[in-house]
Design a binder for these strands. Sequence first.
RNA 1: GCCGGUGUGGCGGAAUGGUAGACGCAGCGGAUUCAAAAUCCGCCGAGGCAACCCCUCGUGAAGGUUCGAGUCCUUUCACCGGCACCA
Length: 850
Amino acid sequence: MSRYDAPSIEARWQAEWDKAGSFRAKADPEKPKYYVLEMFPYPSGRIHMGHVRNYTMGDVVARQKRATGHAVLHPMGWDAFGLPAENAAMASGGHPKDWTYQNIADMRGQMKPLGFSIDWSREFATCDPDYYGQQQALFLDMLDAGLVTRRAAVVNWDPVEMTVLANEQVVDGKGWRSGADVERRELTQWFFKISDMAGDLLDALEGLDDWPAKVKLMQANWIGRSRGLEMSFPLVEPAEGFDAIPVYTTRPDTLLGASFVAVSPDHPLAKALAAHRPEVAAYCEEARKGGTTEEAIETAEKTGLDTGLRVRHPLDASWELPVWIANFILMDYGTGAIFGCPAHDQRDLDFARKYALPVVSTFVPVEGEHARPEEGADAFVPQKTEPVRYVKLFAGEEEQSSEQGVEAAIAFAEAQGWGKGVTRYRLRDWLLSRQRYWGCPIPIVHCAECGAVPVPRDQLPVRLPEDVSFDRPGNPLDRHPSWSRVPCPSCGGEARRETDTMDTFVDSSWYYARFTAPHAVTPTEMDEAAYWMNVDQYIGGIEHAILHLLYSRFFARAMVQTGHLPASAREPFDALFTQGMVTHEIYQTRDENGRPVYHFPEEVEGGRLKSSGEAVEIVPSAKMSKSKKNVVDPVHIVATYGADTARWFVLSDSPPERDVEWTAAGAEAAYKHLSRVWRLAQEAAEATGDAKPDADAALERALHKCIHEVTQGVESFGFNAAIAKLYAFTNLLAKSEAGPEAKRRAARVLAQLMAPMTPHLSEELWARLGGEGLCAEAAWPKADPAMLIEESVTLPIQVNGKRRGEIQVARDTAVKEIERLALEAVARSLEGAAPKKVIVVPGRIVNVVA
RNA sequence: GCCGGUGUGGCGGAAUGGUAGACGCAGCGGAUUCAAAAUCCGCCGAGGCAACCCCUCGUGAAGGUUCGAGUCCUUUCACCGGCACCA
């Protein structure tokens, strides 16, 4: 009997599939189409187990859909622009382009041995001029359609390097290289007007039935529709050309609890004051320190400066409130100004306590006492639907929910004419400008006479210049001696190219559409897009739940609007699956200063370093990362056990939406199991003898059950459950007394059911067990429903919810009879007492209430 | 800080509101072997009991709803993801 020799069979079948063109996506009007897509990788240079898991899941879906008669599109590409290439260029002097294309070649080479059923003829990288040129065309179409705008936005500014920093380059409020305090600084930049579509992007979530509820909830919260009041606080003394401060509030019902008005340090009033009042300028400068992230702003200590200005309360002209500048007010949200009601907002309360501002409750609980914020308790913020008693009331009922109070207050303000109810969104416009080299150039020329002029379409793509240097911080495009100097396309005068490039999220917001016609001379081809879109199944990490998916939904809408996608594709992803990470435990020792020193798994054996025998500390599993060295190289695993083992293992141990822990023992076990299947199949192939009717029938029954369960598991993303069933059936086959023909059939179907996960092994066994043609092209087996019906069932009998016995009954036993048998079975537990009630759940359980 | 998620044996995990621990790993016992590897068979949550009968406890913690809760609700703790320039 031959041994299971993964490397040789894997290479051979990959060549066979290639030769047969099995995975070429071919539009076929006779078949339903199926587009399965995994989020494409960033070309870091090495694939990791997370990639293996992600692409294996997609491959299982692709292979099973092919087997069930679909025309399948399963492409692969590279999300190839981005910061790491520039960082690499700075660190080692190469060029981002060379680094990126070399990484792509390396990763493709590591990926192909895994045997994914990908149509490689559609491969592209987002840094290909073919791709980003089409992206520039899309940008210009979106500009024409009014979906693009230009205005000031805040960036992280490193005052030492004189450069813009990415959020990840800001560490504890300081630049990662210079260590200087980062400032928030304004630049004029390009935006996509995604906020115009906020309402639609929110409402359309409801139609995404095959998206995880948690992702839809995260997106809904991110978009953040709110109903509120826009109103103004008149200044007692007009100042800096302002006679009032407009604010937006979602809690107008608490207006009688207002104790101050606060504006953002970036508010026009704050800027005007700063121009001639040094203490204001100093405060605003201080308040602008730190990064731009919401997290940095929210967790920074709340500070403020009393401007000395006073505003009048709109409900009582004699009531004056102070105007503060506060660091936690965002200029991007609402009007950049708020009124503070400390009794009903914890942040306002902290601020009021710090600066000794009044705290006045406007409502209290209907029943009982809530500790009073006035007397040192926390702010009272009940659920919006919970009724409360208003003690300071100006609109609506004394007893009403906050929700009702807000509506009443809006109606009251509108009737009196000092305010207006508005619906606002938290979602901001999408800032797409990046002051970086390795991205898609924004196809605009700036002319002193004509302003921002689009590059004519026949001059696209605007290519990145290759003669750039990375020896200094900042954007090489900006300091390139000639690249940006061009004549104005409009007047022919001297002009300057836009030197900003696009956010890399733009690249990944339409690649799924490009895969339908990857070589087209327009962004898409309508026929191809109409055939293949939408993506039937999209698979990727939960970390993309908000930004990437929201931007893609926006882009699909924009592409419909600009005629690049059919209207049916405005929601591009029919079904979404978010898979978990691959984790591994961490091995560390300590250096003389007690700092951890990490070690790769292959350097450790039996809890000790192979080299020195020193014991290692084992830190619980975390996401595989190079810095912690808790990584397992898929290339190494494939070389040791074969691709099928790696694929089988990443699917077997955890539900796909959860993290899976890679363990050496688990990988070994997966390999042993595949070897066992190999042996059993060989035994079946070589078996001789007579049929054994009873055992044959029993095996056939079990096989149909297995087909049913595995199909269901694969189609519902229960890959680990499907694999558990395959284990169970393998155990059963091993013990079966069935005759040779029945065993051969069982082994052949088993191989086929495993094929989505272990395609090479399955292909080899298929051939050896007499399967016709390629297993990869064979029709998926069907379970006979008649074979799935059990004739008798075991019913557990509970007494007061605790299991006390069980009975065997025929499938169609009458309820009365089941009751009688159940009481008989648990008579001892009842100790003669008469049951109060008997609950029979047919086919499941009986509960006797004593 | 805000938004979302997760928590079950020694370990990974299974379980339409219906027998908690499927399946796998590790462990233990046995078969095979000159011996080992490989393979095959059996046991395997904790505690109690003469007993593989049975009883008690047990799904991060505390309460609640229900005939019945790992599953639903409230509170709470820990960890993970996101927070708009990492991708």
